[in-house]
Simulated scan of single mutants.
Amino acid sequence: MSAAPDTLQPLIAELPRREPPLRPVEQVGRRRRPRVAYALTALLGALAIAAAQMGLSVATTETTYRVSELTQQQRELTWQKQVLYDEIAGMSSPQYLAANAASLGMVINQSPTYLRLSDGAIIGSGKPAGYASSVSALSKGAVGNALVADTPLVTTPDATMQGTLETATESDVTTALPPPITDGLPTPTTR
C-alpha cells in the first residue's frame, strides 16, 4: 500500500496550479445597512399577536363569569317559577274556590237544576237555593289545603281559610326562605 502514494506523487507535481486572477479594487463599496423596516414589521407583528391573545383571554374570562352569573340567575328564576306554580295550584284548588264563593255569599243548592242543551229541557226541581248552605267551606269538616291556608280571601283581605290573617314579622320571612345555592350543595347562612 505504501507503493501507490509514491506513484501518484509525480502526477500531482506535474499538474498546473490555477490561481484566481487578482485585480485591484478601484473603490471600496459601501457596506449595506440591515433593513430596519423588516425588523420593525416583525416586531410589531409579534406585539400585535401577543395583544390579541391577551384580549381574547380577557374576553373569555369575562364571558365565563357572565355565564356563571346567568346560571345563578336562572336557578333563582326557576325557584321563583316553582313557587308561583304552587301558588296558582293552591288558588285554583276546590277548597279555596269554595271559601271564596262562601265569602261572596254563594250557597250550595241541595237539589241542583240542570239545563239539557239538546232540547232545552230543565231537569231538577227548578227551585232556587236557600239563604243558608248545608255545607260550609270554612267549617271544621272541610279538607284543609296547606298551600292556601294563609292566603287572604277575595272579598275580605283580612280573613283566610284558617280565620283572621296574622301579620308576618320580618324575622319570619327571612327564616322561611331556603338557603342560597352557590354552585354546589346548599349551605346555611352564617355570621
Rank of each mutant, 00 (worst) to 15 (best):
1 M>I: 11
2 S>M: 09
3 A>G: 12
4 A>W: 10
5 P>H: 05
7 T>N: 12
8 L>S: 10
12 I>L: 13
15 L>C: 02
16 P>I: 15
21 P>E: 11
22 L>E: 13
25 V>C: 06
26 E>H: 08
27 Q>F: 05
32 R>H: 03
36 V>G: 00
38 Y>D: 02
38 Y>W: 03
38 Y>I: 15
39 A>F: 01
40 L>M: 00
43 L>F: 04
49 I>C: 05
50 A>W: 07
52 A>E: 09
53 Q>H: 07
53 Q>P: 04
54 M>N: 09
55 G>L: 07
57 S>P: 02
60 T>I: 02
61 T>G: 14
63 T>C: 06
69 E>L: 08
71 T>R: 13
72 Q>S: 14
73 Q>Y: 13
74 Q>A: 15
74 Q>C: 11
77 L>W: 08
77 L>E: 06
79 W>P: 08
82 Q>H: 10
83 V>W: 01
83 V>L: 03
85 Y>P: 03
89 A>R: 13
90 G>E: 00
95 Q>G: 12
97 L>W: 10
100 N>T: 02
104 L>E: 03
105 G>Y: 08
109 N>V: 10
112 P>K: 02
113 T>Q: 02
115 L>E: 07
115 L>M: 11
117 L>M: 14
117 L>R: 07
118 S>I: 07
120 G>L: 11
120 G>A: 14
120 G>E: 04
121 A>P: 06
122 I>C: 10
123 I>Q: 14
124 G>P: 10
126 G>E: 01
127 K>A: 15
128 P>S: 06
129 A>Y: 06
134 S>P: 15
135 V>P: 00
137 A>R: 01
138 L>I: 05
139 S>V: 05
139 S>A: 03
140 K>Q: 14
142 A>Q: 15
142 A>G: 05
143 V>A: 15
143 V>R: 14
143 V>P: 07
145 N>K: 04
147 L>W: 05
148 V>G: 05
149 A>F: 01
150 D>Y: 10
150 D>E: 13
152 P>T: 09
153 L>C: 09
154 V>Q: 11
155 T>Y: 03
158 D>N: 13
158 D>K: 12
159 A>W: 13
161 M>W: 06
162 Q>M: 11
165 L>F: 07
165 L>C: 12
166 E>S: 15
166 E>D: 15
166 E>G: 15
167 T>G: 04
172 D>A: 14
173 V>C: 03
173 V>G: 01
174 T>Y: 05
178 P>V: 10
179 P>S: 12
184 G>T: 03
188 P>H: 08
188 P>C: 02
190 T>V: 13
190 T>A: 09
190 T>D: 08
